[in-house]
Design a protein around this nucleic acid. Structure first.
Length: 224
DNA sequence: CCCTGATTCGC
DNA sequence: GCGAATCAGG
């Protein structure tokens, strides 16, 4: 497959984007990973975090016999111990934009130049479009207490409040404005409190002695 | 073993 | 110029 301009451009983009040579090769199609790497080097865009970089030159006289391996088969291949160029690849990885509050504040001081500001109603400062300061990132929405939609629900146990320790017996019906859960402490080992366990887990009484059971939630007629 | 990128070198 | 073969670290 030929290296058309489009493919070369695609290769450049993906390479600089950080995709691996394998991914790029797969994306382009018709080329191998080696082809991608070779082309990338030929294009001049090399230097990326490579697992093989620090050519640990043994400074000590330790010169382990270079393993010839297939040197016999490939006689023309010469293991060339090129001079170590330590100063190569000085490309620091792009700093992942540490956007901390402190970092933004440190970029403030610029008192020169008479800024034209005016005080608007309410006391805020008006600024021209050109001299906007670094916008303060709004604090991420955090809720320490589960929101209660209304005052009526303030002390009710909502769905968000359910956990393993409180009775999840429903009071009223879903969708109704005051629908909530019992919220009492559970009968250990059960999802409901003692009282509602008694409702939920009715022992089967002998046929004659059975009475009309209390209505179960969601099942029978509404109880209000 | 797999993965990665780097390098070499015949074509 | 191309890329398989090879190297070498993680």
């Amino acid at each position: 497959m030929a290296w058309t301009d489009e493919r070369i451009d695609h290769l450049k983009q993906m390479w600089e984007k950080g995709l691996t040579a394998s991914q790029i090769a797969e994306e382009l199609g018709g080329v191998s990973r080696n082809a991608v790497i070779g082309k990338a080097h030929r294009l001049g865009l090399k230097s990326r975090p490579s697992p093989v970089k620090a050519k640990a030159k043994t400074p000590k006289g330790d010169k382990p016999a270079a393993k010839p391996k297939k040197a016999a088969a490939k006689a023309t291949k010469k293991p060339k111990p090129k001079e170590e160029h330590v100063a190569r690849r000085a490309m620091p990885p792009p700093t992942p934009a540490a956007r901390t509050h402190a970092a933004q504040q440190s970029k403030m001081p610029k008192p020169d130049g008479p800024k034209i500001v005016s005080v608007g109603p309410g006391g805020f400062l008006r600024q021209g479009p050109g001299d906007q300061q670094a916008p303060i990132p709004p604090a991420p929405p955090r809720r320490l207490v589960p929101a209660k939609p209304s005052e009526e629900m303030a002390d009710k146990t909502s769905l968000l409040d359910l956990n393993d320790k409180i009775c999840r017996w429903p009071i009223n019906h879903p969708g109704e404005p005051d629908f909530h859960f019992c919220g009492a402490e559970v009968n250990p080992g059960f999802p409901y409190c003692v009282e509602h366990c008694g409702r939920a887990f009715q022992a089967q009484l002998p046929r004659g002695a059975r009475r009309a059971p209390p209505p179960l939630p969601f099942g029978g007629p509404r109880v209000r």
